[in-house]
Design a protein around this nucleic acid. Structure first.
Lengths: 212, 212
DNA sequence: AGCAATGGTTATGTATACATAAAATTAAGA
DNA sequence: TCTTAATTTTATGTATACATAACCATTGCT
């Protein structure tokens, strides 16, 4: 594995997991020593992160971890709605209905995943990730998929803001199940509407747990 | 201006204007000598281009200019529809109606711009660009704007495929005028629908002039 | 004659040294 | 004491040298 890839993966993980909070200054020498690579591959990693929007170049002061405010969250969800609603519609046209029927079944039973003592909800998030992947695969559009990937990087970072309590996750699972069912039926209007509802609820929950 | 920025701008222009056609191998030493910069800033430029999707890294063989097929064009327009329809809807909510009323007037009179002997249609494209910018400003969403910017890079490259004959440009101007009018009226449904129609017509024209 | 293996060549990946610009600190003058 | 300018310091931007890996050609073997 290339040193620049390692530096990129390490920095990206540090930022997304909030070990490097917004505003952190990423000095080249400091980070290159910390990660055990030279400045050249580290700069390449920083350039990639800046292109993704996780960091921003300040003139003269190196790059800093981008801030992410509640206003940013609203904007992110607006873009997310545009992309995911269309993706759901397209998945209705092109998707393999059996795949989504199966995912629907699993999502209906997702309460089982949440009752167990799994603080990280790994099994739940894995299932939701499989639904996202299935939609991506059904849409079969590399540019749309790339736009969604870019977006999800920021969403993972935002997730740490959200205290994902079991009640909300249970609701979310039902909403995901509704989306999967609509795609399985090939009903684009319902799939898009269900996605809109789900994202609005998610944003409401996020904002309500983060405003005093 | 930094050397890496110059190298990026030069290469990006060369790719978008088809002076570097798809498949061109961008060897580091060759390009760094051609552009008069050292390998380090050149590599930074190539990394940015690769992040945008204009180039792709081949293992062991450096980076090559990405291919862009008719299938890619279809995918691009699919993403474009998702982003621009939503942008038009949001502009209806938040835009300054006078701005779009003014743009509507100018677009109605766009036939004058096309009748003159201006082979590059610079004035026409400038006006359409102002409509795009007005929508971006009205939407006021940095993430959506960034996604649109990323997309437009590829669209500019595709424009060279399209023999933009005066008849089609006249049609397109009318379609743009319809979009501007809908936003000026604050009618989100019509704005989205008009955008859908415009993009479908544009894609049809593009495909019809490029299939034997 | 065809295939495989080995050596050479070329390009990328990485490290480091040097140049330059910006920021901070200190000193001097008002 | 405050402000300003100059100097020092530190970090980024660039160039280049070196290491390494991949590709190609040549040669030897089957």
């Amino acid at each position: 594995m290339r040193a620049s890839d390692r530096a990129y993966a390490a920095l990206r993980s540090d930022i997304v997991e909030w070990r490097l909070p917004p505003g952190s200054v990423l000095a080249e020498v400091e980070q290159s020593e910390r990660l055990g690579v030279s400045r050249t591959p580290l700069r390449e990693a920083l350039a990639r992160l800046t292109a993704e929007g996780l960091t921003a170049a300040q003139r003269g002061r190196g790059v800093v971890v981008s801030n992410i405010s509640l206003a940013d969250v609203r904007e992110l969800f607006e873009l997310r709605a545009a992309l995911e609603c269309r993706a759901a519609e397209l998945a209705c046209e092109r998707g393999d209905r059996d795949v989504f029927r199966q995912l629907h079944q699993e999502l209906v039973g997702a309460s089982g995943l949440l009752n167990e003592a799994d603080p990280s909800r790994a099994a739940y998030y894995e299932l939701v990730g499989r639904l996202d992947a299935a939609i991506d695969a059904a849409v079969d559009n590399s540019y749309l998929a790339q736009a969604l990937r870019n977006l999800r990087v920021h969403l993972v970072r935002v997730r740490r803001l959200s205290q994902d309590n079991p009640a909300r996750l249970l609701e979310a699972a039902k909403e995901h199940a509704t989306i999967a069912a609509a795609i399985a039926k090939g009903n684009a209007g319902v799939a898009s509407a269900a996605t809109t509802v789900h994202l609005d609820n998610s944003l409401d929950h996020l904002l309500s747990t983060n405003t005093p």
